[in-house]
Design a protein around this nucleic acid. Structure first.
Lengths: 234, 234
DNA sequence: CATGTACCGTACCGTACGGTACGGTGTCAA
DNA sequence: TTGACACCGTACCGTACGGTACGGTACATG
């Protein structure tokens, strides 16, 4: 079993060749977040263009640039999304709706399958977190947080750490039921797992530290974090 | 022993009543960062005004607002700092130069004193990270990272996680020499400690999650993180 | 006193950008 | 064919803001 994607409001580019959406994903279940039906196909094209601009230039692109990149008129943009913040918000919601969570096992858990599930989850998470799109979206959301003009921060928070926690909780509880884990609060276990996996990775990439994290490094860190987590809570 | 402050380019307000600069700090040693002599007293007043604006309005304040708040002319600002980015950069460097690291014990370590040192350090760190000034500076730095216009990200990175790691390394090494800790690379131990202490706290506050972390909560988390760290590496 | 320096306050300039208006085109339906 | 509609492209408007210029004041120096 291999998880290729993860929530976090931050998957990867939206191009059809995007490996992060390729396989191993449960696209069947109705999304908890804003459904796919929220935006028309043409609108999705526009929002994907915004995502590209966001990655290339960061927040700070002009509405005119969006119109140019998406071959649509500014008037249409304002008609559809109200204002620039609305456009940005719609973009983040659109990206969030694209993300599908990987399935996590919840029955017949053994120490090995639990470890494997956690490790795969951690690796996907690290991959997502260090991706261009995740970085761009988180930067935008961080910039906008603290001014009440938009709710980007809230949306990214909900689809990032909060969604992760909700996703992992059943696995943790199943692990505890199976006698494989020990903890009082699932939230405590989640915080520890989050910390061990992410550590300073996210803040460093957000602050612009270059130096790609290659796949072997990611696997190694995911494995180490999982082992440590199981040492603490196993 | 009690640590009242910490690096991280993110201490606390610069007002004279600022408790974070009040005591328990080794202000004697020459700073590794830009020295105090870099800016004139009047310039420091201006930069402190910028820090206040940064906390109140975030990045996005106008240069005119700075001039107003600091009772100085825009012309002087441009003469001293070149342009808006120069002003912002100077502000971050000025804040970094203000921060003084707490002393960490390095000899006569016992398991108890090591645990106490780590726990105090962790508590200070959490306090700093969740402070208004830290949040404002990190938000600004994250926003500017990724566009090559300024080096804010690099500066905050250097004075944040990197400075933390350098500061903790001697303690870790001393702990290992004293037979209290086991690890291959100090950087590995640091990442784990960082993750256990900070976890999702920083990204959550940067994304705008409200809900203050009170002192008891901070102490509890610091203690828990330290215990877990010692479980893994002790 | 004369001169120079450093600064404040304000007015000014250019431009970039958010937002609006409008003419032109393709499509669909009666 | 005619009209309604949705949309594109472009021109336009208002304003906010980065950056510059300039007059006026305090002070220091000879």
């Amino acid at each position: 079993m291999r998880f290729m994607n993860i929530s976090a409001v931050l998957s990867s580019p939206s191009a059809p060749d995007d490996r992060a959406l390729a396989s191993g994903v449960d696209a069947g279940s109705p999304a908890a977040v804003a459904g796919d039906e929220e935006y028309s196909p043409r609108q999705r094209e526009v929002l994907d263009a915004v995502l590209r601009l966001l990655v290339e230039e960061g927040d700070g692109f002009s509405v005119a640039a969006v119109a140019r990149a998406a071959s649509c008129s500014k008037e249409t943009l304002y008609k559809w999304f109200g204002d620039r913040d609305g456009l940005l918000t719609a973009t983040v919601r659109w990206q969030a709706s694209k993300v599908r969570m990987p399935k996590l096992p919840s029955e017949g858990l053994t120490r090995e399958s639990l470890s494997e599930a956690l490790s795969s989850f951690a690796a996907s998470w690290l991959t997502v977190i260090s991706g261009e799109l995740s970085i761009a979206l988180n930067r935008a959301a961080v910039s906008h947080a603290g001014s009440n003009r938009s709710r980007l921060g809230e949306i990214v928070l909900t689809n990032g750490p909060v969604a992760m926690a909700r996703r992992l909780e059943p696995l943790f509880l199943a692990g505890r039921s199976a006698g494989l884990l020990t903890f009082d609060e699932a939230s405590e276990a989640f915080r520890a797992f989050f910390g061990l996996v992410i550590a300073d990775t996210q803040i460093r990439v957000l602050l612009g530290e270059t130096g790609r994290l290659d796949d072997s490094e990611i696997s190694a860190r995911a494995k180490a974090a999982t082992d440590r987590f199981l040492t603490l809570f196993g």
